[in-house]
Design a protein around this nucleic acid. Sequence first.
DNA 1: TAAAAAAAGTTGCAATTGCAACAGAAAATA
DNA 2: TATTTTCTGTTGCAATTGCAACTTTTTTTA
Lengths: 207, 207
Amino acid sequence: MEEISDLITNLELGCSRIQKKSFKKNETITTYIQKRNQICILVSGKADLIRYDLYGNKDIVDNFISNDIFGEAFYPVHTNNELTVIANTNCIVLFLMHDDILKKCKTNCKFHNALSSSILELTLNNAIHQNTRIEVLSKRSIREKLLSYFSILSSKDFSKTITIPVSFTNLADYLSVDRSAMMREIKNLANEGVISKNGNRVKLLYK
Amino acid sequence: MEEISDLITNLELGCSRIQKKSFKKNETITTYIQKRNQICILVSGKADLIRYDLYGNKDIVDNFISNDIFGEAFYPVHTNNELTVIANTNCIVLFLMHDDILKKCKTNCKFHNALSSSILELTLNNAIHQNTRIEVLSKRSIREKLLSYFSILSSKDFSKTITIPVSFTNLADYLSVDRSAMMREIKNLANEGVISKNGNRVKLLYK
DNA sequence: TAAAAAAAGTTGCAATTGCAACAGAAAATA
DNA sequence: TATTTTCTGTTGCAATTGCAACTTTTTTTA
């Protein structure tokens, strides 16, 4: 996936249909509004997808890093809740409309062509992440969710010792469980000798 | 999305890279094996994505209907568990390799070109479904999951009266909760006057 | 570098959930 | 159409979870 980032950052932006914008931390990158069909690609930085519910509660729905693709086109036509993408760090973002992807530019620009062939790659990658999250979320208990999450990290890193790449607060969010209940369960797993824990490093002791 | 189905079924299959196969109910359509990068499109019929865990327990991970796109390319390189797609009814399925999508056929076949431009559409649609499921799964309680699911159905159908399109057994599966606990919660919601229920028809009584 | 904010770590308690184990209704199959 | 299988509906009970309310540690910001 490195190629895509290089491709995007190195190519001249000669294409009139694709916009590249910079954002400072805490700025709003986009708001998902019905029917605009926007697609965004995060070239660099980190961002969160946030929902404000009817009572004004803030809920982190997803978070994005370099090479992630997101936008309205990935969400159903919407209801009450508003989805907003906020920059977590300084960000560079490409904006394009979903309908424009397969159409060629009048000028047949090189950038546009190269991007077209990358979109599928990015979108498939997005689907892999989504399926991974669904796999974890579909576990019934906090314990199972944690073990599933650890096991996925472990097989990705080819190691029984893993470093949790996010804060425990964010992990609880990702697993959609109460943070304190999750901490308790991690402690239980450690006490029972299933794992050992040192800060954000976890060692899997089973099998 | 109708066009895609029409497109696929009507076009001549002159392309050597794309295979079209038929399956009878209960036949295995494909097994996800690391590295083959296969993409499948369900032209007609219904199918389930099934995982057999280490203890041989069967778990329905996903289910597919006409126009759904699936396959190894949508899953991370895998670990222990085996994923298998089983036909639920008679099915017609297209098979292609992810690498072949953007490459043109030697013969520059019409079918291949038409398909290329449809793949992104199908994949985005897949992402929308995944995000919908994630939204529901990330609710903390059975009650919230049910209300979120009902609300999505309601806004899709533009009606406060909805017909649940799957069995309660399958709904519990989709929400990843215990079926009996879910039934109990549906009863509670009805007793409290939040919804009314008649078979698989549910009326939302709030707001 | 001092102050403020965010994250990590704990625990009691009440509410929710999963599990097990049924019976009856409906649907699929032989 | 008789039989088998799947689905719906229920309930008691034990286990798990969320919530609330803290303290301590770490990180960020002014």
